[in-house]
């Protein structure tokens, strides 16, 4: 049985999801020969540290660790530096302008030779190549499946299952909120504002939806894909971004009458995010909050994957897969 000591930094929706998934899957992980021990959890209010493992139930019941759970006032950087661990799960809120605080957390962990698994796009958008180099220099692994397609196995599919193929392009729907809004506008004839309001009431869209509907989230994902899969050196500003806020009910109806849907499509290495016409018969013609991505390869043709793009447990499942991959497989996916 291999013991993996984990420091979790960030304890919001995804952080709670990860704790819940580890709790639920403990037996399955043991069957794989892995004993995941979360030795510390840190949020903006403090840290809970238990040498023999934090009981996830303790943390799952509170909104912040300040509610009688924290036993230390250590911040994220201190927790990563001072607590003995093998791997850091970095799930703090994302910031694509400067990447902090996640960027600092990842740099600290990788410098110490600790593996990093994250759902936090910001640091990867700002400094993917630097972080990857840092991991390589210190013999650590950096895994980030959850940053790109939620539960869609995209990075691992490209790096592992399609190894040997040249990846010619990836395009698809990478934002469940936009897909939900466009689906409801087309199916119900709702105007944009009403569909957005419905999405907000259902918790699918944030109170400030700009990050999703203006295409920022999708562009961040394209930045990560361009750098990781295509070995480019792309910054967020290199992506040509148009969101969905100008889409009208009438344009959706015109498209539908001619056998098309309108979807927000991200494309690499084209480096574009924009609404596009998708034929109804296309495998990318998925509705609701689903994401879908088509990977064009030289040997295997075009492969399309689809899956839930967001959600606490769904994102945590991608984090868990990354962790299991690190400790149960050889490093063929770290060739970059």
């Amino acid at each position: 049985m291999k013991e993996i000591r984990i420091s979790q930094v960030g304890c919001g929706i995804v952080g709670h999801g990860f704790l819940e998934v580890v709790r639920r899957k403990r037996d399955m992980l043991r069957d794989l020969g892995l004993d995941l021990k979360i030795v510390s959890v840190t949020d903006h209010t403090g840290t809970i540290y238990e040498k023999n493992g934090v009981d996830p139930k303790k943390v799952l019941g509170v909104k912040t660790l300040a509610e009688g759970v924290a036993n230390s006032d250590m911040k994220g950087l201190e927790a990563i530096e001072e607590i003995e661990s093998d791997l850091v799960v970095e799930v703090t809120p994302t910031n694509i302008d400067h990447g902090q605080p996640g960027l600092g957390h990842m740099e600290m962990a990788l410098t110490q030779g600790k593996n990093v698994v994250t759902s936090n796009k910001g640091p990867l958008v700002v400094a993917f190549n630097r972080l990857k180099d840092l991991a390589g220099e210190n013999g650590a692994r950096l895994k980030y499946e959850a940053t790109v397609g939620g539960t869609m196995p995209l990075i691992s599919l490209v790096e592992r299952n399609l190894v040997g193929n040249n990846i010619l392009g990836i395009k698809g729907i990478f934002n469940g909120t936009c897909n939900y809004i466009l689906t409801r506008m087309m199916e119900e004839g709702y105007p944009y504002g009403y569909a957005l309001m419905e999405a907000q009431e259902l918790g699918i869209a944030e109170a400030d939806p700009a990050y999703d509907v203006e295409g920022i989230d999708t562009a961040a994902k394209m930045t990560i894909l361009a750098n990781s899969v295509f070995g480019m050196n792309v910054k967020y500003d290199d992506i040509d971004v148009t969101g969905i806020t100008d889409i009208t009910t009438e344009s959706l109806a015109l498209a539908r009458d001619r056998g098309y849907l309108i979807k927000l499509i991200g494309e690499v290495p084209a480096l574009t995010v924009k609404p596009m016409l998708v034929p109804r018969r296309s495998p990318l013609a998925v509705g609701g909050t689903l994401n879908a991505a088509s990977i064009e390869t030289d040997l295997s043709g075009t492969i399309t994957v689809t899956g839930l793009g967001a959600g606490s447990i769904e994102t945590a499942s991608a984090i868990l897969s990354d962790i299991v991959n690190i400790y149960t497989t050889r490093n063929i996916d770290d060739r970059s």
């Binding site: 100008d246 344009s251 098309y260 309108i262 924009k274 596009m276 016409l277 998708v278 034929p279």
Partner: peptide, 8 residues
Amino acid sequence: LLVIEPIE
């Protein structure tokens, strides 16, 4: 004007 092109 927003120009919406087809994916193919």
